[in-house]
Computed example of a mutant assay.
Amino acid sequence: MLRGFYTAASGMMANQRMQETLSNNMSNAYTPGYKADQGTMRAFPKLLIEQMGTKSIPGSQGLNLPVQNEVGSLNTGVYLQEAVPAFTQGDIKETGISTDLALVQRSVPDADGFVFFNVQNETGEQRYTRNGNFTVDGDGFLTTNQGYYVLDQDGAPIQTGGMEFEVSAGGDLSVDGQAIPLGLSYSSNVQDMIKEGSGLYRLEEEANAPVDIRTNPDINFEIQQGFLENSNVDPARTMTEMMNTYRSFEMNQRVLKAYDQSMQKAVTEIGRLR
């Protein structure tokens, strides 16, 4: 009975975590460049049940031989193993704002390859983002909405001096006739990237570092100024998944309640002294 109790409880916990993941996706449905998380459920290792006994052999010596009969396997519950971002290109929308940049990925040599903007976080470390909703701070540097510096090809903050600049399709930012290559990186295995919050990604330890996008001629991309990449979250699909997850949570809750009532009956009635 207790095993079934914990199995139902694990299902509730897994569905609760899945609901949190879906809720986070829904809340970022209109965040530029956001990549939806996809939760993956996994079962705990199964238990193999066997019947163990002995079998008497007729004879003068009365031999007893061990016997094992396989009964079957028993599942002990599920858990949410991880939430993996779905790196697919979001829709492009026009904003008409010069600091908005959309990174459009046409074709790449690797199936799991993806292209990112290079930015600098608050501790001065290089990070990666798909959110091109940039702005210019009071010192004339191109930054993200969180105030992180947008980096050039050499890893230095970009000084624009104001909102008047142009960005070519190849990723060159022009200010007063001077071309500054934007810092753009390509990761051949995007699953090595880990979400860090505020639209930033960092590289998993011991993974291959993203390379400059211009070093590989097979990477076909385009920068569109005055445009933004929308989130790839599908609100209608996400709402449907949230409803299904909630129903699954309720089902496990009812099973848990039934086990609780059975345990209460065993304690108060079956175990009653007469």
Rank of each mutant, 00 (worst) to 15 (best):
P109T: 07
D112M: 15
G113F: 02
F114L: 06
F114H: 06
V115G: 00
V115C: 15
F116G: 01
F116L: 07
N118S: 14
N118W: 01
N118C: 08
Q120N: 11
Q120D: 04
G124T: 02
E125D: 13
E125R: 04
Q126I: 05
Y128D: 13
Y128M: 10
R130E: 01
R130W: 04
R130Q: 08
N131E: 09
G132V: 03
F134D: 13
D137T: 05
D137E: 05
G138Y: 00
G138L: 05
G138Q: 06
D139P: 02
G140R: 03
G140I: 10
T144C: 12
T144L: 12
N145M: 14
G147I: 04
Y148G: 09
Y149N: 13
Y149A: 09
L151P: 09
L151G: 05
L151A: 02
L151I: 08
D152A: 04
D154H: 07
A156S: 15
A156G: 05
Q159G: 06
Q159A: 13
T160C: 08
T160F: 14
M163R: 15
E164K: 10
E164F: 10
E164D: 14
F165M: 06
E166S: 15
V167W: 01
V167D: 05
S168Y: 02
G170R: 15
G171W: 02
D172E: 15
D172T: 14
L173T: 08
L173D: 07
S174W: 12
V175F: 11
D176N: 09
D176Q: 13
D176S: 10
G177N: 09
G177M: 02
Q178P: 03
Q178R: 14
A179I: 11
A179S: 10
I180H: 13
I180K: 09
P181D: 12
G183E: 12
G183D: 12
L184P: 05
S185H: 03
S185G: 04
S187T: 01
S188Y: 04
V190I: 07
Q191F: 04
Q191C: 00
Q191W: 12
M193Y: 08
M193Q: 05
I194C: 03
K195W: 03
E196D: 04
E196R: 07
G197W: 01
G197D: 03
G197M: 02
G199R: 01
L200K: 01
L200I: 08
L200D: 01
Y201M: 02
R202K: 08
R202N: 06
L203I: 02
E204D: 15
E204V: 15
E206Y: 12
E206H: 14
N208T: 09
N208I: 13
A209T: 08
A209G: 04
V211T: 12
D212L: 09
R214E: 09
T215I: 13
P217A: 11
D218L: 11
I219S: 11
I219Y: 07
I219T: 12
I219V: 13
N220C: 14
F221Q: 06
F221M: 00
E222Y: 09
I223R: 07
I223F: 15
Q224F: 07
Q225E: 12
Q225K: 04
G226A: 09
G226N: 08
F227G: 02
L228K: 04
L228I: 02
L228T: 06
E229W: 03
E229A: 03
N230G: 13
N230Q: 14
S231V: 00
N232L: 03
V233D: 00
V233N: 01
P235W: 07
P235D: 08
